[in-house]
């Protein structure tokens, strides 16, 4: 595929992504920080619903039509350290690497600094990668997925996991209806 075609597809997909992020209000710093303080559950709901949808789609595509998977390599140290740093960044930014762009789209100005900081962080990693690679980013058991580890067909585990997450979401919604997490100005500020 040509770069131009890929870029056009990317812009279209991103527009849908950004639209969904804005309508759900999950891009608001108030929603992200509120989730990390376990007082607001919009982020978890959007996130887990996207996972459930992906499980069903990938369960069908990979399980029944032999479509390829693109899992990431299991590297315990990198996954743990990287995950912790990423999480710390998410709370202090009030954003994820993708939702920063939704914040920029709606007009938050501090998000430009998150973006610049993010580019600096990614560049720093680029320069450090050759040094970090032998310590943190190589070896490990490879691109391990739970179905191969357990010896269960992918589709079966994917559908089972999807059902479990749906049950969790139903309970979560009963306990805490999503509208109650919006706040007066739809920014997660409930005070």
């Amino acid at each position: 595929m040509s770069v131009l075609t890929a870029v056009i597809i990317g812009v279209l997909m991103g527009t849908v992504f950004g639209f969904a992020l804005e309508k759900s209000r999950v891009f608001e710093p108030g929603m992200i920080v509120g989730q990390m303080q376990m007082r607001n559950f919009i982020m978890l709901k959007v996130f887990l619903t996207a996972v459930v949808t992906g499980l069903v789609i990938i369960g069908i595509m990979h399980g029944f039509f032999g479509g390829k998977l693109y899992p990431k390599s299991l590297l315990y140290g990198a996954d743990i350290i990287g995950g912790l740093l990423l999480g710390a960044g998410i709370t202090l930014a009030g954003a994820c690497p993708g939702t920063v762009f939704a914040q920029i789209g709606v007009g938050y100005k501090d998000s430009w600094l998150i973006l610049i900081g993010g580019l600096a962080g990614a560049l720093t990693f680029g320069y450090l990668e050759p040094t970090l690679n032998p310590i943190l980013l190589s070896g490990g058991p490879g691109k391990l997925t739970l179905d191969t580890l357990l010896g269960v067909p992918f589709w079966m585990l994917a559908f089972g996991f999807a059902i479990a997450l749906i049950v969790l979401l139903v309970v979560l919604e009963k306990w805490r209806p999503w509208r109650s997490d919006m706040g007066q100005n739809y920014d997660g500020d409930k005070s």
Partner: peptide, 10 residues
């Protein structure tokens, strides 16, 4: 935070 976000993600 942006720096941490992307350093961690990478």
């Amino acid at each position: 935070s942006g720096f941490l976000l992307l350093l961690g993600a990478r």
